[in-house]
């Protein structure tokens, strides 16, 4: 059974949607349950100034993605990389049904993917700039 915190976040998730022109996008497709989570980030001066998410999945993963996106905002990229599934679980009220335990590690990996995607795009841009 879901705790009240998860349900409250699920009923009113924050930071839903797409950032047009996002400079980093993390995406994870969970093979076990077919859930899809995307986090879009807007980064300025090495800091996440905005983060939004989209997900196809259960209330647990919607709530976890909402928490993950919120945790990224106003953090530096290095700080984002140390966001853990434990932190996400704490924000979800500290408990999940046994069958949904996987959603926090999933959300953590989307956060890392988004940062990695930003770094990759930046490196590519730097390479292009160097060539110019």
């Amino acid at each position: 059974m879901y705790n009240k915190t998860i349900l409250d976040i699920f009923y009113n998730p924050q930071n839903v949607g797409v950032i047009k022109g996002a400079n980093g996008v993390g995406k994870v497709v969970d093979d076990t349950c077919g859930e899809i989570v995307k986090i879009y980030i807007s980064v300025q001066d090495n800091k996440v100034v905005d983060a939004k998410f989209q997900t196809f999945g259960s209330p647990a993963i919607i709530a976890a993605a909402s928490v993950a996106a919120s945790l990224m905002i106003d953090k530096t990229l290095d700080e984002c990389l140390i966001i853990t599934s434990t932190q996400i679980l704490e924000k979800l009220g500290g408990s999940l049904p046994a069958s949904k335990k996987y959603v926090c590690p999933l959300a953590e990996s989307v956060v890392k993917n988004a940062v990695a995607n930003y770094n990759k795009k930046k490196d590519r841009k730097n390479d292009t700039d160097d060539e110019e």
Partner: peptide, 10 residues
């Protein structure tokens, strides 16, 4: 279709 971790069958 309640999905449980480790249970591949929705």
């Amino acid at each position: 279709s309640a999905c449980a971790a480790g249970n591949l069958e929705p």
